[in-house]
């Protein structure tokens, strides 16, 4: 059983929902990322999503764009990101790590070498924002060979027949993009998410996690009421960036991000069952 599958199984048995922080590898600093990953896990993260910085992150709002720019300024490449996962695995062999990014760095490295490297360092899943099902076949084949899940996005604009097609080739979990827009934008409408969630759940038994638009304990709690997990990215990255912009240290920035994650964990856990 893969780390992702056993993670969701454990959560299900415990009656809990997944908290999934997203951070950009190498932001705010190259050497802060692996310690930050461990602290996120200690603070209640079930899965860690590690963003691969890209020069042209088309689906990101301004907050995460700046995170990508800072990471690139720190010289972070896809190989560096995989190196960070390897470091993380030295002290954590159970928390799933999902790598999220854009197609071109992976294309450049080559699908086969990328998949092999992912398996070696202990990556569990991959989300490639600009590889929809129509374009992902050859990469997914390589990932399947080494037992890594390719995680698909479904959005509010995905029609029902297409949902059925997407879930057929999906594994790990489904990532539901809750708002039309870029990361960190818009207001989440829980009722909309709930009704859409029903459609996805009718098509698959895979866990469905929700991202885009989750900012705090309240929005995370609301999402956890209708989904299997909540992804939070921009809010964490913004907290760290704001702290540093106000003259705070990276340590303080991390502390503040950890506090936010803890409150999100509480928001998710305090959901009354059956809602």
């Amino acid at each position: 059983m893969t780390r992702l599958t056993s993670c969701f199984e454990r959560l299900k048995n415990e009656g809990r929902k997944a908290v999934i922080p997203y951070i950009v590898a190498g932001d705010p600093s190259r050497f802060g990322t692996v310690p930050l990953m461990h602290r996120l896990v200690d603070a209640g993260a079930d899965i860690v999503e590690l963003g691969v910085p890209f020069s042209d992150p088309m689906s990101e709002g301004p907050v995460i764009q700046k995170g990508h720019e800072r990471a690139l300024d720190n010289g972070i490449s896809l190989r560096d990101v995989l190196g960070m996962v390897a470091d993380f695995r030295q002290h954590d062999s159970s928390t799933p790590v999902v790598v999220m990014g854009y197609a071109n760095p992976v294309e450049r490295m080559g699908y086969a070498s990328f998949a092999t490297a992912c398996a070696e360092v202990g990556v569990d899943g991959l989300i490639t924002v600009d590889l929809p099902p129509e374009e992902v076949d050859s990469l997914r084949d390589q990932l399947e060979l080494v037992g890594i899940d390719n995680i698909f996005l479904i959005s509010p604009t995905t029609p029902e027949p297409r949902i059925k097609t997407i879930v057929q080739s999906a594994s790990g979990f489904i990532y539901y993009v809750a708002v039309k827009g870029v990361t960190g934008a818009g207001h989440l409408d829980t009722a909309d998410v709930a009704s859409y969630m029903t459609k996805i759940k009718e098509a698959t038994t895979l866990p469905v996690c929700v991202g885009f638009g989750i900012k705090d304990a309240a929005s995370a709690g609301a999402v956890a009421g209708v989904a299997d997990g909540a992804v939070v990215g921009s809010a964490l990255i913004d907290t760290m960036a704001q702290t540093i912009a106000n003259g705070g240290s990276e340590e303080l920035a991390t502390d503040n991000a950890i506090s936010l994650l803890k409150s999100i964990r509480n928001g998710v856990d305090n959901v009354p069952t059956g809602v």
């Binding site: 924002v129 600009d130 374009e135 698909f152 479904i154 959005s155 297409r162 993009v177």
Partner: peptide, 12 residues
């Protein structure tokens, strides 16, 4: 060529 975009745009 191809269609290398986020899922949200695929239907459009």
């Amino acid at each position: 060529g191809g269609k290398f975009v986020a899922e949200t745009l695929m239907t459009a």
